[in-house]
């Protein structure tokens, strides 16, 4: 077994173990902690697949920003045990298990079915594209445009996939605006004054888009005490 295989095995065990801990913890803040561990280890997997840029973005956005927001919301809600609802009934849990296994089978299928990787490979950009990129301006990475590097990502997203990229950003913008409209109680009232009477922090743009899902996650996690001493 090569060294890379050993490392992959170790980080896979950590990733799956932390993910299992994340869904079984009764305390939502521990779920968040183990979810963060999972995300960090997945970043290591990206690094092993020679995608350092993706790995760093995984740490920056998921582990560094989104999970901090999750912990922020969990701390802010500070739910008492009776506010968290009851444990889900058995049929619901069985249904959830079936759905999870189905998703797992769907994801595992390409790994065991030999035809799928070949089909996926045909969708990948031709290798010659890597050398077609113009060198970056200034003293940049022009000479070192390789798969997974920052420059490769930039050229691919803003060149080949610029339209899907812009569509996704418009979708995210629409979600942010929608959450703003839903969260604001009275749109006609202007509640921002310069004398500091508006003590609410302005909504966080990214957090706004995730606020709904975060809140539902925080409440749907296994109910129990919220604080360490409660």
């Amino acid at each position: 077994m090569a060294a890379a295989d050993v490392i992959f095995l170790v980080i896979s065990i950590i990733a799956v173990g932390a993910a299992a801990l994340a869904v079984t913890r009764k305390n939502p803040i521990y779920s968040a902690l183990f979810m963060m561990v999972t995300l960090l280890v997945v970043a290591a997997v990206f690094q092993m697949l020679s995608s350092p840029f993706l790995a760093v973005m995984q740490v920056l956005l998921y582990a560094g920003a989104i999970m901090v927001l999750f912990t922020f919301v969990i701390m802010l809600l500070s739910l008492r045990p009776e506010e968290m609802g009851e444990t889900a009934p058995l049929p619901q849990r069985i249904f959830a298990a079936v759905v999870a296994l189905g998703v797992f089978a769907l994801l595992a299928f390409p790994a065991i079915e030999p035809g799928v990787p070949a089909a996926a490979a045909s969708l990948a950009p031709p290798a010659a594209e890597a050398v077609r990129f113009p060198p970056a301006a200034g003293t940049g990475d022009g000479a070192t445009v390789e798969f997974g590097a920052t420059a490769y990502f930039g050229h691919t997203i803003f060149g080949r996939f610029v339209l899907p990229f812009e569509l996704v950003s418009i979708l995210v913008l629409a979600a942010v605006v929608a959450v703003m409209v839903l969260a604001k109680r009275d749109l006609s009232k202007r509640d921002v004054a310069d004398d500091g009477s508006d003590r609410d922090p302005p909504p966080l743009s990214v957090s706004a888009a995730h606020a709904g899902s975060i809140a539902s996650l925080a409440t749907s996690t296994q109910p129990t005490s919220h604080g360490p001493g409660a």
Binding site: P52, F53, A55, V56, L60, A63, T150
Partner: peptide, 9 residues
Amino acid sequence: NVGILFATA
């Protein structure tokens, strides 16, 4: 080769 992005992350 991710340089400064590593620090921010």
